Simulated assay, not measured.
Amino acid sequence: MLERKQVKDRVRVTFVLPAEAPPGAVSVVGDFNEWRPGAHPLEPRRDGMRAVTVVLPAKGVHSFRYLADGDHWFDEDQADGHDGTNSRLHT
């Protein structure tokens, strides 16, 4: 799930997943962090989910995927689109 909040010329995007699915550590990896695994790990929230927030420039398009333990890559079902391999996010 994606949560977004406009803040002037930026957008705070929070990437949210259930705490247990998939099991183990998960990070969001994309063009905004030079596709570095572990740069934005999802952390537990009080509501039983886990999340990480990334601040991105407004009016942009970004590619990303999730990376879980065991080199398991997966997409965001609620992304704004997909480019064949990656999820797409419009800010």
Rank of each mutant, 00 (worst) to 15 (best):
R12S: 13
R12D: 15
R12F: 09
V13C: 11
V13R: 06
T14L: 07
T14H: 03
T14W: 02
F15A: 07
F15C: 00
V16A: 00
L17M: 09
L17P: 00
L17Y: 03
L17Q: 11
L17G: 09
P18L: 03
P18N: 07
P18R: 09
A19S: 15
A19D: 14
A19N: 07
A21V: 13
A21F: 12
A21M: 08
A21C: 02
A21P: 01
A21S: 14
P22C: 12
P22T: 11
P22S: 08
P22G: 10
P23N: 06
P23T: 06
P23H: 08
P23W: 01
P23F: 00
P23G: 13
A25H: 09
V26M: 03
V26R: 02
V26N: 07
V26Y: 01
S27N: 10
S27L: 09
S27V: 13
V28G: 03
V28R: 04
V29I: 13
V29R: 03
V29C: 06
V29T: 14
V29E: 09
G30D: 06
G30K: 08
G30A: 12
G30F: 12
F32I: 10
F32V: 09
F32G: 00
F32C: 05
N33V: 11
E34I: 00
E34N: 08
E34V: 08
E34C: 07
W35P: 05
W35K: 10
R36Y: 01
R36S: 09
P37F: 06
P37M: 11
P37I: 08
P37A: 13
P37G: 14
G38M: 14
G38P: 02
A39Y: 11
A39V: 06
H40Y: 15
H40A: 14
H40R: 08
H40V: 06
P41T: 04
P41M: 15
P41Q: 04
L42K: 05
L42F: 02
L42N: 04
E43T: 14
E43D: 00
E43A: 14
E43P: 00
P44N: 07
P44C: 08
P44E: 00
R45H: 00
R45L: 09
R45M: 12
R45S: 02
R45N: 10
R46K: 15
R46L: 11
R46T: 07
D47M: 10
D47N: 13
G48Y: 11
G48V: 03
G48I: 09
M49V: 02
R50F: 05
A51F: 05
A51M: 05
A51Q: 12
A51Y: 02
V52G: 01
V52F: 06
V52Y: 12
V52N: 00
V52K: 00
V52C: 04
T53N: 01
T53M: 12
T53I: 02
V54N: 01
V54G: 08
V54I: 13
V55C: 01
V55E: 15
L56Q: 14
L56C: 11
P57Q: 10
P57L: 10
P57I: 11
P57C: 02
P57W: 06
A58Q: 14
A58T: 02
